[in-house]
C-alpha cells in the first residue's frame, strides 16, 4: 500500500470566468451564488474557499514576454524584472490551482466555447511536470488523487437534446476532456440553459435545485 506523505488538502477553488465578474443580472453568477450559499452552510470549518476572478485578477497571457522567459529558464539564463514578475504570477496561479481539491468553474457560453480568459487560465495551469508529464506513450495527467470539478454554465440555447447544439458545445467537451486528461475524473456540469428560449426564471430555478444537490454531494466528500 502506498502511503501519501501529503497533508490532507481541504480547499475549494472558485474559478470565475464571467466577464461581468460580480454582476447580479448574470444567470451563471446567480446560480453560482446560490450554490455557494448552500455549500458554505454544509461544509466543515476546516474547508477553506478561495476565489479567482479571471476578468479582474491578474491572469497572465502567454505572450512574447512569457515565451522569452520560458526560453531563458530552459537555458538557465537570468530573467528581466518584467519576465520575473509575470512568471512569478503564473506560478502563483498554478500553485493556487494545485493546492485545491475541489473546483467550481462559472462561465457564460460565448460562441459555443469557453471565454478567452478561461483559455488563458488553462494555459497557466496546464504545465508539463506540474499537472501532467510527457511519457514515451503520450502525455499523462498528474492530478489523479481524487479531485472533483463542478462546472456551472449558462447559455441562451439548449445543449442536451442530442442535436446540432450538442455537437457544437465545445466548452463542455473541451473542459471535460482536459480535466479528465489531468486526472480529474469526477467532473460534473450544471447548465442553466435555454434562457433565450424559455422563461429565464424557470431555467434558473431548475439550476438552483441542481446546484443544491451538487453542494450536498461535494460537501459530504
Amino acid at each position: 500500500m502506498q502511503i501519501k506523505g501529503e497533508i490532507q488538502m481541504n480547499k475549494t477553488l472558485i474559478i470565475n470566468a464571467h466577464p461581468k465578474v460580480d454582476d447580479t443580472s448574470s444567470y451563471s453568477l446567480k446560480v453560482f451564488h446560490h450554490f455557494l450559499t448552500a455549500y458554505k452552510e454544509l461544509i466543515p470549518d476546516s474547508e477553506t474557499i478561495e476565489q479567482i476572478d479571471l476578468y479582474s485578477d491578474v491572469v497572465p497571457i502567454v505572450d512574447k514576454t512569457v515565451l522569452s522567459a520560458w526560453e531563458k529558464q530552459r537555458n538557465e539564463q537570468e530573467l528581466t524584472s518584467q519576465e520575473k514578475e509575470v512568471t512569478d504570477r503564473m506560478s502563483e496561479v498554478l500553485h493556487q490551482f494545485k493546492s485545491a481539491d475541489t473546483y467550481v468553474i462559472v462561465l457564460p457560453l460565448h460562441n459555443f466555447n469557453i471565454p478567452s480568459k478561461l483559455k488563458d487560465y488553462m494555459d497557466n495551469i496546464m504545465i508539463a511536470r506540474e499537472t501532467f508529464k510527457y511519457t514515451e506513450t503520450g502525455s499523462v495527467g498528474l492530478l489523479k488523487d481524487g479531485r472533483r470539478m463542478l462546472v456551472i454554465q449558462a447559455s441562451g440555447s439548449i445543449y442536451t437534446n442530442n442535436d446540432w447544439y450538442t455537437e457544437v458545445e465545445y466548452s463542455h467537451k473541451y473542459l471535460k476532456s482536459m480535466f479528465n486528461f489531468l486526472g480529474i475524473e469526477d467532473y460534473q456540469i450544471i447548465r442553466a440553459q435555454g434562457t433565450a428560449l424559455l422563461e429565464p426564471n424557470e431555467v434558473v430555478e431548475k439550476a438552483y435545485k441542481e446546484v443544491e444537490e451538487a453542494a450536498s454531494r461535494l460537501a459530504a466528500k
Partner: peptide, 26 residues
C-alpha cells in the same frame, strides 16, 4: 495549437467577429 485548443487571443477575436445580429442570426 496550445493545450489542444486555440490561443486565447484567437478566441477573443472570434467573440468580436461572431456576433449575433451582425455576422449571423438565430
Amino acid at each position: 495549437m496550445w493545450n489542444w485548443g486555440i490561443p486565447p487571443r484567437l478566441k477573443a477575436f472570434i467573440d468580436s467577429f461572431v456576433v449575433v445580429g451582425k455576422t449571423f442570426h438565430y
